[in-house]
Simulated scan of single mutants.
Amino acid sequence: MMKNVMEIITRCTLVIYALIAILLIVIAFLTFFDAVYLIIGLFSHPHLVSGILEVLHVLLLTIIVVEVLETVTGYFRTNRILVRPILIAGLTAMVRKVLILSVDDIQIAEVIWIIGIIAVLTAAIYVVGKSENYPNQGEIR
């Protein structure tokens, strides 16, 4: 009885992950095409630097979505949640946050938190990368 319940739960989990993967693919394509649209619009943008920052903002969002998608597809390949793509997505999100900070709105406490988070994520990516040489490390079962 318990084995059947676990099998149903496992299948439901796989279906949910598959649906999430499909939605992430759609979002990745939409953000990518938005970036292409913004690049084309750069030629008529009144403030070139502002336009470039918009493009970077959307491209980094696309990278974040792709890294989350990599986590989902990694789960299908290994039946484990891979930690490294999640950390990379987090690091990319923090870099994106730095890009959208305005000099007028910067508060020192926020900058310190952002620097700390970036340092911790970078160290975690390094540690997880080193542990990839050893089986079953850097993954959540």
Rank of each mutant, 00 (worst) to 15 (best):
H57M: 09
E110L: 05
T92Q: 05
D105G: 12
E54F: 05
V103L: 13
I112Y: 02
I63D: 01
A35D: 06
L60H: 03
I114T: 14
S44E: 14
L30G: 07
V103M: 13
I88W: 01
G41T: 05
V95W: 01
I117D: 03
V55F: 05
G41V: 07
E67D: 11
A35F: 06
I115C: 14
L30H: 07
E110F: 05
L59H: 03
G41I: 04
L23G: 13
A93C: 08
V111G: 03
V65P: 01
F29K: 10
I115S: 13
T78H: 13
I81D: 08
P46H: 08
V95R: 02
I112R: 01
H45F: 11
D105R: 09
T78Y: 12
L82A: 10
I112M: 11
L56D: 05
L56N: 07
F29L: 15
A89K: 05
A21T: 14
V68P: 00
S102Q: 14
V36W: 00
L48E: 09
F76Q: 09
I52L: 15
S102A: 11
G41P: 01
I25K: 03
S44G: 12
H47F: 07
R77P: 00
S44Y: 04
V68T: 13
L99V: 10
I39H: 00
S44V: 14
E54N: 09
E67T: 05
G51K: 02
I86R: 01
V58F: 00
L99C: 06
I81G: 06
V111F: 10
T73K: 07
L59N: 02
I52W: 04
I27V: 11
L56G: 09
I117S: 12
T71P: 10
A28N: 06
V66N: 03
I40E: 09
A93D: 05
I100W: 07
L42Q: 02
L61Q: 10
T62M: 08
R77I: 06
V98W: 04
I25W: 11
I108K: 00
V111W: 02
G41R: 13
G116F: 02
T78P: 04
V103I: 14
L69A: 05
G51W: 01
P85I: 08
